[in-house]
Amino acid sequence: MGHDRLIGEVYLAAAEIAARVAELGAEIAADFEGREPLLVAPLKSSTIFLADLSRALPILHTIDVIEMAAYSDGRRGGVRLLKDLDVPIGGRHVLLVEDVVDTGLTLAFLTRTLAERDPASITSVTLLDRPYRRLVENIGLRYVGFTVPDELFAGYGLGLEEQWRALPDLRIIPTEALPAAATDAA
Rank of each mutant, 00 (worst) to 15 (best):
Y11T: 00
I63E: 05
F153P: 00
E27V: 07
T111K: 08
G77M: 06
L43V: 13
L127G: 04
P37E: 13
A15K: 07
Y156V: 00
D169I: 06
G74V: 13
T47C: 15
R75W: 06
V40I: 14
L53W: 03
A41T: 05
M1E: 10
E151P: 02
E176D: 13
A70W: 14
D99G: 02
A181W: 13
L170N: 04
T103W: 12
L114V: 09
T106W: 10
R133N: 10
A180G: 01
G78N: 09
G91A: 15
G140I: 06
F109A: 09
T113Q: 11
R75L: 14
M68A: 10
A181S: 08
E162R: 14
T175I: 06
D184Y: 09
L85P: 00
G2Q: 07
L95Q: 03
G77K: 06
D150R: 11
R142V: 09
R134G: 09
E151V: 01
S45K: 09
D84E: 13
D184C: 05
L81F: 05
R171H: 15
G91H: 14
T175K: 09
E98H: 15
I17W: 12
V125M: 02
L60I: 04
H3F: 15
T106H: 09
L95A: 07
G157Q: 10
E9R: 15
V21I: 15
L38N: 07
R112T: 02
I66K: 01
E33F: 15
D31F: 12
A69K: 15
Y71A: 08
L57D: 01
A26K: 07
A41Y: 04
D52S: 04
I7R: 10
E36D: 10
G159R: 06
A26M: 03
A166Y: 06
L95R: 05
G74H: 11
T113K: 13
S45H: 09
V97P: 01
V87M: 11
L50D: 02
L60V: 07
R130G: 01
A29N: 09
R142H: 05
V101A: 11
